[in-house]
């Protein structure tokens, strides 16, 4: 059996991360990490052990560096359904 047959479309890459911790970037300056348990063709996701990071940029244009102060809010959720229309990307977490 050729395992390469497994990867034919982008969704197959997401499938590799099933049951693994994933990093999800969402609209509205939100990011999630969590263990992926389900996804579908709309990129609807079900994650567990989720940590959400919300970034609120204050005064984006002010300051000499062109960067505003970023307020980061974090919260944790046990089990979360994420609606696919807000998902920008799904990736394995960066290995540190």
């Amino acid at each position: 059996m050729d395992t390469s047959a497994g990867i034919q479309e982008p969704f197959d890459l997401i499938r590799l991360s099933l049951s693994e911790r994933v990093f999800v970037k969402l609209r509205g300056d939100r990011e999630l990490t969590g263990i992926l348990h389900a996804y579908d063709g709309h990129m609807n996701l079900i994650l567990s052990e989720v940590e959400e990071t919300i970034m609120l940029v204050d005064g984006a244009d002010s300051g000499p560096s062109g960067q505003g102060i970023v307020n980061v809010t974090k919260r944790k959720m046990e089990m979360l359904f994420v609606r696919g229309d807000g998902v920008i990307l799904v990736s394995p977490p960066s290995r540190t």
Binding site: T3, I7, D12, P92
Partner: peptide, 14 residues
């Protein structure tokens, strides 16, 4: 590699 392992695992799951 991790990705290879995951690919094989998904195939195994199938």
């Amino acid at each position: 590699s991790t990705k290879e392992a995951l690919t094989i695992l998904e195939y195994l799951y199938d």
